[in-house]
Amino acid sequence: MSWAWEYAPDEEYVVDGVPPALVAHVEEKAAELVRAAEALYLDGTSYEGFSPEGGTALVQGGMFVYQAVPRQERVYVLQVTAW
């Protein structure tokens, strides 16, 4: 496997009605989070602890909630909020 990010449960549910510029910022930041998780959990599939706490990330025009799951080598974007 290789680390990646995705919307959960799916893109339509998470970013429906969100301005495209904000979506672009969220996706850039999600890619940064993937690189950080990849460096921290070199082989996520063999990780045996609890998944780390989720977090929030501020981006231009809003914020989003995410969860990293090392065993799945995924960062899930769960909610996007525009302001």
Rank of each mutant, 00 (worst) to 15 (best):
M1V: 13
W3L: 08
W3S: 06
W5D: 03
W5L: 06
W5I: 07
W5P: 07
E6K: 11
E6H: 04
E6N: 06
Y7G: 00
A8C: 10
P9Y: 07
P9E: 05
D10Y: 00
D10F: 01
E11P: 05
E11M: 08
E11D: 03
E11I: 05
E12H: 09
V14K: 01
V14E: 02
V15L: 00
D16G: 15
G17A: 10
G17P: 06
V18M: 07
P19H: 06
P20R: 02
P20D: 10
A21F: 02
L22P: 03
V23T: 06
A24Q: 09
H25E: 11
H25P: 00
E27A: 02
E28N: 08
E28D: 12
K29W: 01
A30P: 05
A30E: 08
A31N: 02
E32K: 11
E32I: 08
E32F: 11
L33S: 02
E38K: 04
E38P: 12
L40Y: 07
Y41F: 14
L42Q: 14
L42G: 03
L42S: 13
D43E: 13
D43S: 07
G44H: 06
T45K: 07
S46R: 14
S46W: 09
Y47L: 09
Y47N: 03
E48W: 10
E48P: 00
F50M: 12
S51D: 15
S51N: 15
P52I: 11
P52S: 04
E53W: 12
E53I: 10
T56W: 05
L58D: 06
L58W: 01
L58Y: 03
V59N: 02
V59C: 06
Q60T: 08
G61Q: 04
G62F: 07
F64E: 02
V65Y: 06
Q67K: 14
Q67H: 13
V69L: 14
V69H: 09
P70L: 13
P70C: 15
Q72I: 04
Q72G: 05
Q72M: 13
R74L: 15
R74A: 14
R74T: 10
V75C: 13
V77H: 01
V77M: 06
L78A: 08
Q79V: 00
V80W: 00
V80I: 04
T81K: 05
W83E: 04
W83R: 12
W83T: 09
